[in-house]
């Protein structure tokens, strides 16, 4: 997809200034530049601009999002059962465990929260930990902005309530394919919500009877979704540097820093390096 032409050539820098002034030159420039890695990066920024014109928010998007996510949500359900079991052991009632899954809808933070759950409940520690574990969602949400720009605040924030790792990944895949289905996140989120809450209830009722999700390979669904997404997000040579930066920083940070900060650190490091490389 990228032929490896020099990306930082003078002509490109000039083209960029012209493009900034003239929309027509920009459109022509897009075709011509599509061969260079630099333009590839630029096209992404611009095509985000085109995509947002064509974004829709309707039943069709909800339906497709829901159906695409069901198989993944079944795998996530393995974790919901595990969470239900842990919540039950921590002393939460079935209704309380279900309420947590229905309103928080963020697996890792819920599991850690019930592990911290003692009597009296360490409220401050739980809230700070939940915030720290879930801060990565800010970055994930911000990554959706190019497509969500045209949606109403109600549509955006309503959809984001249902965002979890797996359906964010599926939504990125859908939107980068150019389908313009703005309601995909909401539909996929509803699927996640139903299976997450349902499996929590099963786990909380069944208590210790249920086995380890690893026995059925459910624990691998999470990694598998992200490997599949990585394949789709690969944009050729222009992806190489940011990905290597993200990988190196995340792996090192995971060793050194407790919790899930490594996701945030890896993502931010890649973005910072890209900002520095831009025009350089």
């Amino acid at each position: 997809m990228v032929d490896g032409t020099e990306r930082d050539g003078e002509p490109d820098a000039r083209a960029r200034t012209i493009e900034d002034r003239e929309p027509d030159a920009r459109a022509r420039g897009r075709n011509r530049d599509a061969r260079t890695a630099d333009a590839d990066r630029k096209r992404r920024v611009e095509s985000a601009g085109t995509d947002r014109e064509a974004i829709t928010f309707g039943r069709e998007g909800i339906r497709v999002g829901f159906l695409t996510t069901v198989p993944v949500a079944i795998g996530v359900g393995g974790y919901g059962v595990a969470f239900g079991v842990l919540a039950n052991r921590a002393g939460l009632s079935v209704a309380e465990a279900a309420l947590m899954s229905a309103t928080v809808l963020a697996g890792a933070s819920q599991i850690v929260a019930v592990e911290l759950w003692t009597d009296p409940i360490p409220v401050a520690a739980i809230l700070v930990t939940v915030f720290a574990i879930n801060l990565r969602y800010s970055l994930m949400g911000a990554a959706l902005q190019p497509w969500f720009r045209r949606l109403t605040p109600k549509q955006i924030y309503g959809s984001l309530f249902f965002m979890a790792d797996e359906n964010w990944a599926l939504t990125m895949r859908e939107l980068t394919s150019g389908s313009g289905r703005g309601a995909f996140l909401l539909g996929s989120g509803i699927a996640m919500w139903l299976f997450w809450v349902g499996s929590t209830i099963v786990g909380a009722i069944a208590g210790g009877v249920v086995g380890d999700p690893a026995r059925y390979g459910f624990d691998f669904v999470f990694a598998a979704v992200f490997v599949a997404l990585a394949v789709e997000l690969w944009e050729g040579r222009s992806s190489l540097v940011p990905w290597l930066v993200a990988l190196a920083v995340a792996v090192v940070a995971a060793e050194l820093v407790a919790g899930r900060w490594y996701i945030l650190l890896g993502g931010v490091a890649a973005a910072v390096v890209e900002v520095i490389r831009y025009d350089a």
């Binding site: 920024v45 990554a143 890209e274």
Partner: peptide
């Protein structure tokens, strides 16, 4: 624009 891929990795 590099965030999606970087977060995944």
């Amino acid at each position: 624009s590099v965030l999606p891929g970087a977060i995944v990795i």
